[in-house]
Amino acid sequence: MLSEVNFPRKIQSFIRRQGRLTAGQQHALDNLWAVYGLDPNIDVDFSEVFGRNAPLCVEIGFGNGESLAKMAAANPDIDYIGIEVHRPGVGHLLMLLAEKNLTNVRIYCHDAIEILEKRVPDDSLSGVHLFFPDPWPKKKHHKRRIVQPGFTELLCRKLKAEGYFHAASDWQHYAEQMLTVLSEQKRLENASPSADYCPRPDYRPLTKFEQRGIKLGHGVWDLIFRKL
């Protein structure tokens, strides 16, 4: 059990900005959730859910799902659990999964920390992805950032040996904080030869937002740590 000192249970790393659902997103939620959605209140055997034993990766906060759908299409031998609290993004990903006829993705619309704690078995994940999380830029809100010591303890419980955690951020200060926190976790090892940031691996697609930022000269920092 994570302590309130390391990872305060009452503090959320997200705000539910539901936004307006398009007709297509609402239709997908109404008709495709039964195919791809998972109930956060029920334990499941992921090998039964996917009908096979395959490497399992979790993406925390997949946004509109574009990157997750691309990864799943490019890596059919890997199963993915996407976790997102915003229903428009969930609806958009459902549309993409049906359009691409992808069978290796399932979705939770819930708090990722609760899903990891309660529904994901220990030592079961090959990878955990956290791409462009909310940076909470104001200093008084830094405590809401998801990457904290308690989170790294949770990662180490859920990852298999040699499993990896991959984070990416376009906020340098947050990237620096993540690097410090992850480096302090003795059960994680930085995959970067220079012990800082990694080049973007081919499996992480460039998002439209990221491409726009790069054209404007904005930096992006990728961190990859493996469980010892």
Results as ranks from 00 to 15, higher is better:
70 K>L: 11
18 Q>P: 08
121 P>K: 06
76 P>D: 02
137 P>W: 09
130 L>N: 10
46 F>P: 13
65 G>E: 01
88 P>Q: 01
40 P>H: 09
120 V>S: 10
49 V>Q: 10
90 V>F: 06
97 L>T: 05
69 A>V: 04
30 D>A: 14
33 W>M: 14
95 M>C: 04
64 N>R: 07
94 L>F: 03
132 F>D: 04
152 T>S: 15
154 L>W: 07
48 E>F: 03
77 D>M: 10
59 E>G: 10
66 E>G: 07
65 G>S: 08
136 W>A: 15
145 R>A: 14
10 K>F: 10
121 P>N: 11
47 S>Q: 12
154 L>D: 01
11 I>P: 04
116 L>Q: 12
56 L>F: 03
108 Y>Q: 13
26 Q>C: 09
16 R>Q: 12
28 A>I: 00
81 I>L: 14
85 V>N: 09
96 L>T: 05
63 G>N: 07
108 Y>G: 15
98 A>S: 13
134 D>E: 12
80 Y>R: 01
60 I>R: 09
108 Y>L: 12
79 D>G: 03
125 L>I: 12
20 R>W: 00
121 P>R: 06
122 D>H: 07
95 M>A: 01
36 Y>I: 11
59 E>F: 06
48 E>N: 09
108 Y>P: 13
90 V>H: 06
112 A>F: 09
117 E>P: 09
131 F>S: 07
34 A>P: 03
94 L>P: 09
57 C>L: 11
77 D>Y: 05
62 F>V: 08
135 P>W: 04
109 C>P: 07
59 E>D: 07
76 P>M: 04
20 R>I: 00
89 G>E: 02
126 S>R: 04
81 I>S: 06
105 V>F: 00
59 E>A: 10
154 L>H: 08
